[in-house]
Computed example of a mutant assay.
Amino acid sequence: MKKEETSKQEFDYISFARESCLVAGFFMLGYGIWSIYPPAAWIVCGGLLLWVGFPQKQKGGD
């Protein structure tokens, strides 16, 4: 019987830390703006989510 090898993927702690800081920063920005003027927080945070969520334009025309 042949022993199957399982590939283990190592957890990327640096990537996780960067993503966690990005999410925490987003929430802190949203809360700070909400403390000043709540509708502005919806506008700014919504704009940031759209900016991050849309795919980037590709060069080359196709």
Results as ranks from 00 to 15, higher is better:
A17Y: 11
G47P: 03
E10W: 11
F16R: 06
A41Y: 05
S35R: 10
L48K: 08
G25P: 04
Q58I: 00
G25V: 00
A17K: 12
I36H: 02
V44R: 01
G53P: 09
I14V: 15
Y31K: 06
A41C: 12
Q9A: 15
I36Y: 10
G46F: 07
T6R: 14
S7V: 13
Y13W: 14
I14W: 15
T6G: 08
E10T: 14
Y31R: 09
L48C: 09
S7E: 11
K59H: 03
A24F: 10
G32S: 05
G47Y: 08
G46P: 04
S20M: 07
K2L: 11
Q9H: 12
P38V: 02
I14L: 15
S20F: 09
F11L: 15
R18P: 01
P38Y: 03
A24I: 09
V52S: 08
P38K: 03
K57N: 03
L49K: 06
D62V: 09
M28A: 15
W34L: 08
A40W: 09
K59N: 08
F11H: 14
P55Y: 06
K3R: 05
Q56W: 10
L50G: 13
I36C: 03
P38G: 04
I43N: 08
G47T: 04
Q58K: 13
L22V: 01
I36R: 01
K2G: 08
L22C: 00
K3G: 08
E5W: 03
Q9E: 15
K57H: 00
C21D: 10
A40I: 00
L49G: 12
F54C: 09
F26R: 00
E4Y: 10
K57Y: 04
R18T: 13
K59F: 01
K2Y: 13
A40C: 05
L50T: 12
K2R: 15
G46C: 04
L29F: 04
A40T: 09
G53V: 02
E19N: 09
L48R: 01
C45V: 12
G32K: 05
Y13Q: 13
G30D: 02
I36D: 02
L49V: 15
F54M: 14
L49R: 10
G47I: 04
L29H: 06
F11Y: 15
I33Q: 02
G32I: 03
